[in-house]
Amino acid sequence: MQELFSQYFIYWLILILFMIGPFGMIYKKNLVKKLMAMNVMQVAVIIFFLVLGQKTGGTLPIEMHGLAGVENYINPLPHALMLTAIVVSLSTTGVALALLILIQRRYGTLEEDEMLRRMNQ
């Protein structure tokens, strides 16, 4: 049990973080909070990939003098992939915020119930 706990603990934390996303999006009624839940979900995926790239005994993936061999550096591929994913998450958030500004200007509120009420008037 101890063994299992130490081996998979970080995965569990990541999965909790990941599932906070859909939960928050359904449970919270404020649109900004929904957006934040979405961001939490994306960050969870990013951390998941970065954890995959780690190696015991590895250092930064930048070549250093007198340090050769695969086992001395951590895996650079997830880092490169996640740079892309971070940018994507940032862009999505940007577009979402622009949409929220429009919604706020039109309906004067970001609470979902209130907004739906004003929308159907």
């Binding site: 299992l4 081996q7 998979y8 603990f9 970080i10 995965y11 569990w12 999965l15 954890v51 995959l52 790239g53 780690q54 190696k55 015991t56 005994g57 590895g58 993936p61 695969v70 086992e71 550096y73 895996n75 650079p76 591929l77 997830p78």
Partner: peptide
């Protein structure tokens, strides 16, 4: 989660298949 490789394992597939070429 038990199907995933162990944390920080230097012999995991991710560390041994594609990435060594990059390093």
């Amino acid at each position: 989660t038990s199907g995933l490789p162990m944390l920080f394992d230097p012999n995991s597939p991710a560390a041994t298949h594609v990435s060594p070429r990059y390093i």
